[in-house]
């Protein structure tokens, strides 16, 4: 990597500083809240388990809750926390992806980069790398915060292998949505790209929940991107399912396609 490429990445990471900071603060607070809630609720775990046992298993599966979800922090995190975190993070990743190229085309600041000694291909790929680093940092901060807050509040922290797998899985999901944002930002108007990317995240989220219900065709769930990060497998085995490679492959494909589209794009400024 040349010095100017490194400079570009540093500059762009600097631009994402505020996003990283606000994301980290919000999820640190939520992490603390979840740890405190876990401590309180786990004290009444038996009563809660009886309530959940009364519900149809398909409904519990659809909302990603096991009957023993208050017995271990891993079960608790795989339920509500991860569900909210994945959806919020996906939409955030779409915004990051769209702004990286589409936003710069929209406000014309892309000119400041295409008139420097940077090829269009490298601008796109470096922006993808910047997003990757940004999402990794954000996930890492949230992961560390969760470990600390569970330790502080509940006295039982999630296992490291669970946290690492969650970190990699969530980051992969986010990178996939960021790649969707990147390619949508190159092909569409900024506002359309944001709406398109967010719609994919929200529809995917509901399709994944619906697909788990009895009577709904299995293929429907496979249409959801969240299906490929199996949180049930994560909860039970503290490791990632091989399906995650579908998301890794899709991200790579979208990023490479986006780079080629951006290379040929006319920039009407």
């Amino acid at each position: 990597m040349k010095q100017r490429h490194l400079s570009f990445m540093t500059q762009q990471l600097g631009r994402n500083r505020k996003s990283i900071l606000s994301w980290s603060i919000i999820w640190t607070l939520l992490g603390l809240l979840f740890a405190a809630v876990f401590k309180t609720m786990s004290a009444t775990a038996e009563q809660s388990a009886r309530i959940y046992e009364a519900l149809p298993p398909a409904v519990l599966k659809a909302v990603n809750i096991s009957t023993d979800y208050l017995t271990k922090p891993e079960n608790f995190l795989s339920g509500q926390f991860l569900t909210i975190y994945l959806l919020a993070g996906s939409i955030f990743a779409v915004i990051l992806g769209v702004n990286a190229i589409g936003g710069k085309v929209h406000d014309k600041t892309i000119l400041n980069y295409v008139t420097k000694r940077l090829s269009r291909m490298s601008i796109f790929l470096l922006q993808a790398a910047v997003i990757l680093v940004t999402l990794m940092v954000m996930n890492l901060v949230v992961g560390i915060t969760l470990l600390i807050s569970f330790n502080l509040f509940s006295g039982s922290e999630p296992s490291l292998s669970y946290m690492v797998s969650t970190f990699i899985g969530a980051a992969t999901v986010f990178i996939t949505f960021a790649a969707i944002g990147l390619i949508a930002g190159v092909k569409m108007e900024k506002s359309h790209a944001l709406a398109f990317g967010s719609a994919i995240a929200i529809i995917s989220f509901f399709v994944n929940g619906l697909g788990a219900l009895a009577g709904v065709p299995a293929w429907l769930q496979k249409c959801s991107l969240y299906y490929y990060f199996d949180t049930t497998h994560l909860r039970d085995f503290y490791s990632l399912d091989a399906r995650i490679f579908v998301l890794i492959g899709l991200s790579l494909l979208l990023i490479i396609a986006g780079a080629f589209i951006f290379r040929r794009k006319n920039l009407y400024l």
Partner: peptide, 15 residues
């Protein structure tokens, strides 16, 4: 881009 360090571009609206 290879020869951009030898070129200057000034648009009507600062980008």
């Amino acid at each position: 881009y290879k020869i951009m360090p030898r070129i200057g571009v000034l648009l009507s609206e600062p980008a």
